[in-house]
Design a protein around this nucleic acid. Structure first.
Lengths: 332, 332
DNA sequence: TTGAAAGCGCTAACAG
DNA sequence: CTGTTAGCGCTTTCAA
């Protein structure tokens, strides 16, 4: 591989001139340099550049699991934004494990100019540790207490409230909630939404109606079975995320529960196949791609220094999409 | 940030010793170095290391779209394997655009030790161009003609053949095929599978029964409508990938076609919600994660120099999972 | 086993 | 506008 020196020699100039030419500055010998570069098929070394400048033209993205369609969409939104800005993205899956998240952040930090992370828990040590460094960070989907980073969230409470309102309007009074881990932002916020909204409607507070899952499919399945076994079964259930919704749906099917007549169900997050289900699934939808590009935009503003305020929370809207999985409860 | 010199000074040794210590070599002053590192919270610069050694400890992965569950699973498989080997992964979405793919490869190549790519087309110029470099590459899901790279594919022909056989056994004779682009490996191979398998059963060759889509949802939708409008409608359809299957399913639903009585359908690739559909979807499944980890393994063998043979094609098995969307055709 | 020193490829003062 | 030069932080000969 030719280096800058080779180009300089071939063009009969100094490396400084080549460097300037590369940087887009005016150089008298531009033509000679251009053809030398052409002839030698020269491309500058990203690494040498990074070492010298301290810049990497890369950002790191840490999500729990790229296999979750929500995070896939989020990452896609980030990636597109990154390419536009001339940055590469280095991806890491934390797998809902704080240890793994920490390890990822440690290695990524050395080769990126900024980080977008969806932290596992709100008391996230690895994020807190980051605060000591000067690397720009934006938190997405989930935030961390007592950090000063910007975060991009969605209106979790509003979404769940809309879902509860919808069910109450239909005449439900026994509404259950399959929650995510209360240690995570979306877990906690959606749970709060449920508690507040049901209270606002003066629904009986029935502790068995709230089951804490772990955002994975199996826990949605298990939770739904548990609800179904209750003496005083709920007539409707709201599920706090996409994967658990899939689990709940599978349980419903295996249990042979008629939806929505025996049980109405609303899932958090749109699913590519929501319309294909019988009945089509009512969901609380949000723009995963938007959430990604929004957080990337914030990060680049900070990297480029055009943004100095911090600790700001951007809350993106969600939308209740009513389809067929919710209806009036059948009288017992 | 402390550097190796600071550590050397603090420990009263040379930078060479620190470097050796870091590399795991025996050093008399190990203890002193260790505590200096501890005290200064030193971590070596990945970049400086790369510049010196020419190694990056990172691999690049280029896929059409991470948002496609198949590629998400694939990338996950790669990522896990990469972490085990101590490598980061830099992700790129080519969006089915050769130009974008080329651009991605150009930038990635400068910061990775190897590349795993799912090339858009079989006559892929950017891949061919790569051959001139010495960067290890493995092709996944799709291959490129006249390259010498290893590739990890699945048994496309076998999968489609199993699907056709299954339909024929059920009594179908009018079997349609919604194909992917014939310029891509899976597009072409699955198409070949269809042609060969239908011919083997002496089915009438009906050109209108084959529609070439672009692997995206809309094209599956459009293709299915086109098939449905045929005078001599097929009684069954095989769809060449997951996204087009979703499109076809949506069309079926909007057209109010009864599945499987009016139309049997088989999709290529498992779908997370296949069992949730009414009827559950019969699919040709493969291990996306496996395909990823297999290709990563191959790449690392090559990076580490333990593998020298090349141009090998690994063909992973697929499995026909019969569910409810296929049945005996109703007599006209 | 150790240290001195060269150098990976580039950028950015600085001086001209 | 241009060239000279130092140096980013590390690894790796080479000599001791």
């Amino acid at each position: 591989m030719a280096n800058i020196q080779d180009v300089a020699d071939a063009a009969g100039v100094s490396t400084a001139s080549v460097s300037r030419f590369l940087a887009g500055q005016k150089v008298r010998t531009a033509d000679a340099i251009r053809s030398a570069i052409e002839a030698l098929d020269y491309t500058p070394s990203t690494i040498a550049r990074s070492l010298k400048t301290g810049r990497h033209n890369a950002i790191g993205v840490v999500v729990p699991d790229i296999t979750n369609p929500f995070f896939a969409g989020l990452v896609r939104g980030i990636e597109d934004q990154a390419r536009v800005n001339g940055y590469d993205v280095i991806l890491g899956n934390s797998d809902e494990s704080p240890t793994q998240e920490e390890a990822l952040i440690q290695t990524l930090i050395k080769r990126v100019d900024g980080l977008i992370v969806a932290p596992i828990i709100e008391e996230d040590q690895s994020i807190l540790a980051l605060s000591k460094t000067s690397v720009p960070v934006v938190l997405v989907d989930r935030s961390v207490t007592s950090t000063n980073y910007d975060s991009v969230l969605v209106d979790n409470i509003g979404g769940i409230t809309a879902a509860v309102d919808h069910l109450v309007e239909l005449g439900h009074t026994r509404i259950a909630f399959i929650s995510g881990p209360l240690t995570s932002t979306p877990g906690r916020a959606r749970h709060t939404g449920y508690v507040v909204a049901t209270a606002a409607h003066n629904l009986d507070h029935c502790p068995e109606y709230v089951i804490e899952g772990d955002f994975r499919e199996e826990s949605g399945d298990a939770a739904l079975r548990q609800l179904w076994n209750l003496d005083n079964r709920p007539t409707a259930v709201i599920v706090a995320n996409n994967l658990m919704t899939i689990g709940a749906l599978k349980a419903l099917r295996e249990l042979d529960v008629a939806v929505p007549t025996q049980m109405s169900i609303i899932g958090f997050d749109e699913l590519s196949f929501a319309e294909l289900l019988q009945p089509p699934l009512t969901v609380i939808a949000r723009g995963d791609n938007d959430q990604g590009s929004r957080s990337a935009t914030l990060l680049f503003e900070r990297i480029q220094g055009t943004r100095t305020r911090s600790g700001e929370v951007t809350t993106l809207p969600v939308e209740l999409i009513v389809r067929g999985s919710t209806s009036t409860p059948t009288k017992p």
